[in-house]
Design a protein around this nucleic acid. Structure first.
Lengths: 206, 206
DNA sequence: TAATATAATGAACAATGTTCATAAAAGTAA
DNA sequence: TTACTTTTATGAACATTGTTCATTATATTA
């Protein structure tokens, strides 16, 4: 029987252990391909113990998803502002693509949530839940960052236009990653470079 | 006990009945939210009977997916070629967006396959299977159609550039649909219009 | 050391995809 | 019609899943 985690610290450690192992399994086999029994086994815990730390499988997934968003946001915030606005936005796109390619496990998680209304893998029906709000907040944060980037090159756009442009840009970039992010690096680089060029061009000639 | 389907016609009818019912359920509750028992029940058949017509649940899904692709391809081919190349491509994008919004059930299916390598909902590990090839063929067909559209406005691009541009365009459009296709019509129209404008602009100023 | 409180366990439950021995239906030949 | 064969339909049964909960083990307290 595993040692009991009584202290707050120990509990956090155990939670992290479960998350780390789950992330590896999710990356390897996806949400549906990963079983709680697997997570328990590689964590050297019993099935029931997992449920002492997370209410259900979805919540493990969501915890990782939120971490993924936070990591991405952290990356996006790190853009050097020493260059021109145009260079900045180009930099931002590069960072986004690089993050997605380097962290496919987190990025996959992010996309489990885009297909809403019964079609997605991940169901978060209760839009009032803490989890739903946490995810929504990070989505919004990402969009706000994109808006900042775009504002740099297009200060003439109205708030409404800016928002719409950011939404279109964000989803278009995501589409490229979704379609080609799992391909080999060479191919992904080639297509993402093309997409970047197209988006930069379109932002200048709106 | 249900009447037996002995003739080829009757078998086709029964297959169609299952597909129609499955499509409704998939649209409502997604792949994982739909059970074979549900499909059997609404089809007035026993569980085992479903398995006489389809080897497994995934294959039902794939059959519908292929139909969805064919429907989309049919739509895309119907573009009137009476106008300028630029009007044609604009028309093509409109058709694509309209199809996605009008046929969310099929479109969702299409996107079950984009997340490859263990992360997606739909696993088609065997790349030699008839089903995999059928889906791949239709994906390629879509891309070829996009290339034709783009060739109209950009005859100067090399084969390689054309291909890359088509891939980027196709995935960017898909990203918009993925992110906003389930929103209300007004919002989807607003963002998809923006995306269309951006892509058209970028194609002209590559 | 005994009593109490907390944490861990894994058998058990309901639901799922799938299989297969059995039964029903349809076709065939007399 | 009747006996026989072939094809189709059935649903109980199986393995696997997410999840629960009575029981057991561990730690804390008195």
């Amino acid at each position: 029987m595993a040692i009991q985690a009584r202290l707050k610290n120990e509990k956090e450690d155990r939670k992290r252990l479960i998350l780390n192992n789950a992330l590896i399994l999710f990356r390897e086999n996806g949400l549906n391909g990963t079983t709680i029994r697997q997570v328990a086994k590689v964590s050297d815990l019993a099935v029931g113990t997992i449920y002492l730390y997370f209410p259900d499988k979805t919540q493990i997934f969501c915890a990782l998803l939120i971490e993924g968003y936070d990591l991405l946001i952290e990356h996006l915030k790190k853009t050097p502002h020493a260059y021109s606005a145009m260079e900045n936005i180009e930099n931002g796109i590069d960072i986004y693509f690089a993050f997605a390619f380097a962290n496919p496990e987190y990025f996959s998680l992010i996309f489990y949530t885009v297909q809403s209304r019964g079609q997605g893998v991940l169901e978060l029906a209760d839009t009032n839940s803490v989890t739903y709000k946490a995810i929504k907040q990070r989505k919004d944060k990402c969009l706000a960052l994109v808006m900042d980037y775009i504002k740099g090159v297009r200060s003439d756009l109205s708030r409404k236009e800016l928002e719409r442009t950011a939404e279109a840009t964000w989803s278009m970039l995501a589409g490229v990653i979704l379609f080609f992010g799992k391909d080999d690096k060479k191919r992904f680089n080639s297509i993402s470079w093309q997409a970047k060029k197209m988006i930069l061009n379109s932002l200048l000639s709106l």
